[in-house]
Measured scan of single mutants.
Amino acid sequence: HNLTITQGKLFFHYNPKLCLSEIHKMEEVSGTKGRQERNDIALKTNGDQASCENELLKFSYIRTSFDKILLRWEPYWPPDFRDLLGFMLFYKEAPYQNVTEFDGQDACGSNSWTVVDIDPPLRSNDPKSQNHPGWLMRGLKPWTQYAIFVKTLVTFSDERRTYGAKSDIIYVQTDATNPSVPLDPISVSNSSSQIILKWKPPSDPNGNITHYLVFWERQAEDSELFELDYCLKGLKLPSRTWSPPFESEDSQKHNQSEYEDSAGECCSCPKTDSQILKELEESSFRKTFEDYLHNVVFVPRKTSSGTGAEDPRPSRKRRSLGDVGNVTVAVPTVAAFPNTSSTSVPTSPEEHRPFEKVVNKESLVISGLRHFTGYRIELQACNQDTPEERCSVAAYVSARTMPEAKADDIVGPVTHEIFENNVVHLMWQEPKEPNGLIVLYEVSYRRYGDEELHLCVSRKHFALERGCRLRGLSPGNYSVRIRATSLAGNGSWTEPTYFYVTDYLDVPSNIA
């Protein structure tokens, strides 16, 4: 807008934040220059609390790290170098490059900038070799853009010569660093050979998330399962459950009422301010606690030095998902009996873990797994792929695949051998790939016309006998059925096997 004052003059007093240069501009645009008398524009009460600059400061050096910015700028000295009290560095987070010096300023003089007072450097006698002032900004957020400017702080001049310097606002972004852990990993099994893994992005990506790394490792069953005799009275049979499938998407929606109208769909109840505040506090606490764990609990591995020492970490090797089922080394339970199943799973520490690289999504279907087997899954978020990966501390989750139908069934015939004193040795093959492992066998036998009897055969007993022995049988026709019990439950009964026990007292003698 054009402003013209045809008559009258300007009068400025007691404006401590208004620089004289701005008042002189007002004289020019209003056409009143030359009308004012000496005392109409006070030299001592206008701009006496402001830094009124008329020179431009330029930054000469900028260096960044993930949490620091090192700045240096060209030296500046007023005509009387004693008038320079120091520099004021202003900075704040700036997602967009549209910041002005006066953003967030209120009537009390406060604003949204963080201000650092910096002492002037030592003055050199040689004007050509003056030290460049600077400042190291610490405690910054990774991968965050900051708006920065600097200006001088000078003393009051009796001659009211307006001098000083100020830089333009520059924008500097800190470097990326390792992201925080992925949030809320959930693993479920939808079949006997697959596990579905879902997660949420890290709360602090500290860069642009480029991919996720998912490692999985087959877990050995508890050692007590191999040692305890679950045929003993009072000892509860062990059981394991597989990871249940995901709930429906509708039930997972946030901010939804727990109660549904019987007449149909209901609208979600909005969260109160107290609920939102509580969630923010919980989120802040979780982030602080995660940072504490990362800094205190997890110790970084030592990389190899120039002395030739090897990095103890196993090298990563990509495998196809079809090879995942046989990740671990199978060892027989008892070496003397080769027909026992290889369900003991000690994992070799030198073995390469299978892994998958996930790009542009937060889910993965891990296939080719062994049925009813526990897996430990390790999830890392990465925001750099080359020249070397920059990934987060791992988040861990466990899951067990679903049982395989008929995996616990005894394959092959049940054979028998009759000894003296009416002892019958029953023999059968253990299931080759049971659900988890076989903890015991149930032997059901009966003599024709009598009630059915049951015998429990422990895992250890089966390994020693290759089956079991029935003792003290009365003469007669017998039928026997056997079924295995694994961590997933009972298998199917075998087809009945028949044998006849004679009275050993009636056996004919070869003595003449």
Rank of each mutant, 00 (worst) to 15 (best):
R316F: 15
W242M: 04
L213T: 15
K233Y: 12
F355G: 09
S363D: 06
S284L: 08
A399P: 06
D408S: 02
K302R: 11
D385T: 02
K271S: 06
R313Y: 09
N360K: 13
N383I: 07
A220K: 06
T340R: 07
L225K: 05
C266R: 09
Y292K: 11
R471K: 12
Y396F: 14
T343W: 11
E433H: 03
I377E: 00
T288Y: 15
F226I: 06
F372M: 08
K357P: 12
L379E: 00
C269R: 09
R218F: 03
Q380S: 07
E221G: 15
V299L: 06
V329D: 15
S268M: 12
S444D: 06
G325I: 11
Y445R: 02
C269Y: 10
A336V: 06
V457H: 03
E281Q: 12
R353E: 08
E404D: 10
N422R: 13
T485Y: 09
E227G: 14
N383T: 08
E258N: 06
D229T: 09
C231I: 02
T288W: 12
R483T: 01
E247H: 09
S248V: 10
E362H: 10
R390Y: 03
L437I: 08
E495F: 15
Y500L: 11
A405K: 14
S363V: 14
D503Q: 14
T241A: 12
G489S: 06
A463W: 10
S305G: 09
T340N: 10
I276V: 07
V324M: 10
S479V: 07
Y478L: 00
Q275E: 09
T288M: 09
V501N: 06
S492G: 13
E221D: 05
N206P: 03
Y441I: 00
T210R: 03
S257H: 05
E362T: 11
E265R: 14
P312D: 14
T502A: 14
E227M: 14
Q252R: 09
I418E: 10
V423H: 09
I438M: 03
R318V: 14
W216F: 13
N421R: 13
V397K: 13
L321R: 09
W242Q: 11
G476C: 00
S348P: 13
M427F: 13
G449S: 10
S320K: 14
Y396C: 07
A381G: 05
S492N: 03
D222T: 06
G308V: 15
L369R: 02
Q275L: 07
Q252W: 11
T241G: 11
L455P: 01
S305N: 13
E389G: 05
R313V: 12
T401N: 01
S315M: 12
E221A: 01
N360H: 09
L277Q: 09
Y212R: 00
G207P: 04
P475A: 10
S262H: 07
S274C: 15
E442A: 05
E452M: 08
S315K: 12
G412T: 06
R376S: 06
C391Y: 15
S243W: 08
N295V: 12
R353L: 13
N295Y: 14
S444L: 05
I438H: 02
S223A: 11
C266F: 08
H416Y: 15
V439E: 07
V214R: 00
E465Y: 12
R376A: 05
I438W: 02
E420S: 03
I366W: 01
